[in-house]
Write a protein that binds this DNA or RNA. Structure first.
Lengths: 201, 201
DNA sequence: GCATGAATGTAGACGCCGCCAACAATGCTG
DNA sequence: CAGCATTGTTGGCGGCGTCTACATTCATGC
C-alpha cells in the first residue's frame, strides 16, 4: 500500500447521490438542461461514467429527483415569504413577487418541474409537491374569504384564478417575453385587476 | 441499367424540407419530443442520415422552424374562432376555449414554442409570432375598452392580465394538473372572475 | 443543347451519449 | 471474520448530431 495522500478519493464516494443532484443543479443553472449528461456529471465528480447508474436507474430518474428538489425549494421560499396578517391584495403581491423571483432565478429547474415527462409513478410525488406549493395561495384565499374580504364561492375556483395568473406571468417571464423588471413591475397591476376586475365599478 | 420501377425514389426528394417538418410534427404528436431524432426522420422519409443537414443547419434549427409552424397554426385558430361582435366576457370565453383546446391538442408542440432555447436570432421571429398570437386578445380588450365595457387604463396592462390567466391555465392543463374536461369547465368561471374581480361588489 | 456551378443527397467517420453486463472494492451484519 | 449487499470501475453496444468528401441532379447563361 503506497503512502498516497490519505484523502485520495476513497473507492466509495460517500454521498454520490446528493453530490450528483447538487452538481446537476449547478450545471442546469450554468449551462442549461441541454448540456446535462450523466457522463459529464460523473467526470465532474471524479467517478466513473457508470457510477450515476447506481443511484438513478436512468437519466429521467435523476431529472425527477431534481424536480422534487425544486418543488421543495419553491415551497420553502413561498412559506417563508408569506405574511398571513396582510390583506389579500398585499399578501398576493408578496407571494407573486416571490414566485416570480424564484421562477426567474431557477428557470431551467422550473422547466424540469413542469415538464410532462415523469408519468408512471413519479407523477404522484410531483402532484403532492405541487399541492404543497399551491398551499400558500389556498391559505391566503381561504383566509381572505373568511374575513369577508372577497366574494363567496368555491375557494378552489378562486385559488385557480389567482394561481393561473401568477403561473402565467412567471411562465411568460421565464420564456423571455418580459425582462425581469417589466415582469416585477407588472405584478401590482396584475394583482389589482384580479381584485377589482375589468368591469367598471 | 436494369428496368426498375420508374418511380423508385428519385435522387432528389423534391420538398424534403417540408416533408421533414411534417414528419417531425407527426412524430412529436405520436411519440413525444424525446424520441425525435434527425436520423429517424431521415429514415422515415427514406433519405440518408445527413440529408436533413442540407435544410436545417442543426437540430435546433428544425425545432425553431417547427415552433414557428406552431405559432402560425395557433394564430390561425384564434383568428378563426374570434367573434368581434361579442361582449368581452363571451368573446374571451371563446378565445380561452380555443387556446386551451389548441394547447391540449398540441402539447408537445407548445412546449417547443415556449422553450427558452432559440436565443440568438430566431428569437425575433418568435417574438413576432407571439405578437400575432396575442393580437386577438389585444383587439378584444381594446374593442371592449372603446365600448366603455371595461375600465380605462393601459390596454397593454389589461391584455396582460387576461393573457397571463389564459396562458397559465393552458400551461397547467398541458402539464397534466387538470384533465381536459376540468380545464375546459374552469374557463367560464375564470373569465367571470377576471371580469368582476375578487372583491365583493 | 450543353457546360458549369449551385443545390441537394450519400457514405463514412468522429466523439459524445445512455445504458448494460461483468468484475472489483468496500461496508455491514450476524 | 465470513458472507452478502452496496457502491464503484471497465469495457462495450447501438444511437445520436455533426463534419467532410464525394455523387447526382438542377438550373442558368451561352
Amino acid at each position: 500500500m503506497p503512502a498516497e495522500k490519505p484523502e485520495t478519493r476513497p473507492y466509495h464516494h460517500g454521498d454520490l447521490r446528493s453530490a450528483l443532484l447538487a452538481a446537476a443543479e449547478r450545471t442546469l443553472r450554468d449551462k442549461g438542461s441541454a448540456s446535462l449528461s450523466l457522463r459529464e456529471l460523473a467526470r465532474d465528480l471524479g467517478v466513473s461514467h457508470a457510477a450515476p447508474g447506481r443511484h438513478f436507474k436512468d437519466k429521467q430518474a435523476l431529472l425527477n429527483a431534481l424536480a422534487l428538489v425544486g418543488y421543495d425549494r419553491m415551497a420553502e421560499a413561498l412559506e417563508a415569504a408569506d405574511e398571513p396578517g396582510l390583506p389579500l391584495q398585499e399578501r398576493l403581491t408578496v407571494l407573486a413577487r416571490t414566485y416570480l423571483g424564484f421562477a426567474i432565478d431557477n428557470a431551467e429547474l422550473l422547466e424540469l418541474m413542469y415538464a410532462r415527462k415523469h408519468e408512471p409513478d413519479a407523477a404522484e410525488q410531483m402532484a403532492a409537491a405541487i399541492d404543497r406549493t399551491v398551499g400558500a395561495l389556498e391559505r391566503a384565499v381561504a383566509a381572505a374569504q373568511q374575513r369577508g374580504e372577497i366574494v363567496d364561492g368555491d375557494p378552489e375556483q378562486l385559488t385557480l384564478v389567482v394561481g393561473t395568473s401568477l403561473h402565467g406571468l412567471a411562465s411568460l417571464a421565464v420564456t423571455g417575453k418580459f425582462t425581469t423588471e417589466d415582469a416585477m413591475a407588472a405584478v401590482s397591476g396584475l394583482v389589482h385587476h384580479l381584485m377589482y376586475g375589468l368591469k367598471p365599478r
